[in-house]
């Protein structure tokens, strides 16, 4: 890991994508760079931008395998995932 790739005022995260989000963006994960102090909501907005206007359902976000709140702060090393409406069973 390069120390130059992460400055003090930004957070780089790999976001896991599933179902409609993976299809719309064309990948099962994507890298995003957010400003330090970014929230779950900021992450969701950044990911939705990558879908380039394709219709997507509202999604939840998981941080380290737990459902996160919209205002939750993100930190480097978090395992983040976009969780579209689940349909198990």
């Amino acid at each position: 890991m390069s120390r130059n790739s992460q400055t003090r005022n930004e957070i780089r995260l790999t976001v896991l994508l599933f179902a409609s989000y993976a299809e719309a963006i064309g990948a099962s994960s994507v890298g995003v760079t957010l400003a330090d102090g970014a929230t779950v909501n900021d992450l969701l907005a950044a990911v939705r931008q990558l879908a380039a206007g394709k219709a997507l359902p509202p999604a939840a976000v998981a941080v380290n395998c737990e459902y996160a709140t919209a205002q939750q702060l993100l930190k480097p090393g978090d395992e983040v995932a976009i969780i579209p409406p689940v349909a198990g069973g």
Binding site: F18, A19, Y67, A81, I83, V86, A87, G88
Partner: peptide, 9 residues
């Protein structure tokens, strides 16, 4: 399970 478990069909 249907409410919380991240599985998609």
């Amino acid at each position: 399970l249907k409410r919380r478990v991240p599985v998609w069909k």
